[in-house]
Amino acid sequence: MSLVTTLYVGLFYLATLVLVVGLTLRIVKYAKTPAPLKIPTMPAPLTEAGVARRMFREVVFFESLFRASKWTWIFGWLFHFGLLLVLLRHLRYFTEPVWFWVNWIQPFGKYAAFAMLAGLLGLWARRFLVDRVRYISTPSDHLMLALLVGIALSGLGMAYLVHTDIVAVKGFFLGLMYFSPQPLPADPLLLVHLGLVVALMLVFPFSKLLHAPGVFFSPTRNQNDNSRERRHIAGWAEQLEAGER
C-alpha cells in the first residue's frame, strides 16, 4: 500500500470516529439537558403533530430565515440544497449496487454543485458587504466558508477538468467500509478534495455546524403550546420542590 493510501485510510477512520463519537456525545447532551419551562416562540402549534410540521418547514424551507432576510435565505437555501443533492449523489461511491434513486438524481446533482457554490459565495459576500454581518463574523466563519468552497471547487475540478479514476475511488471507499483497504488514486485534486472533507468531518462536532442537530433540539421550535392543559416540569425542579416539603 502506498504512503498516500495509508495516510488517507488513517485519516478517514480517525475523522469518522471523531465525527460519530463527537456528534453522538453532543446529541446525547442536548437530549439529556432538561428544558424546565415551556418557551416555544408563539404562536406555536397546539399539538405534537403541529410541532412536527413546524420543524419540517423550518428544516426544509428555512421558514424563519425567509421571514428575516430574503438574500440570506436565497443563498442559504441554494447552498444547503445544493449540498444535499451533492451528498446524495456521492452515495454512489459508497453503495454497490448503487441504489436506484441515487441514479435518478445524478443529472440534477451536476447542477447542484453550482448551486451550492453560488450559495456559498453569496453568503461569503455578505460577510464583507453588509456591515452588520461583517461585525459579527469571526475568522472561523470565513474559514468554514473557505473550506466548503475548497471542497466544491476541487470536486468541480474533478468533474469537469481533470478527471480522476472514479472506479478506483469507489474501490477505496468500499474497501474502507469492509475493512480491506484498497489503493487510492494519487491525483492532486482528489487528495485536496478528500483532505478538506476530512477537515470538515473533524471540525463538525466542535463548531457552529452543530446547528444541524441543534435545530431539532431548540425548545423555541420543538415545543407545543399546551402549558395550561398539561403540567410541564423538569427533574431538577421536582427535586427543588421535594426539598421544600
Partner: peptide, 9 residues
C-alpha cells in the same frame, strides 16, 4: 452552540 452568525437577527 448553534448560532452560525448568519446575521438574520
Amino acid at each position: 452552540d448553534s448560532c452560525v452568525h448568519c446575521g438574520a437577527c
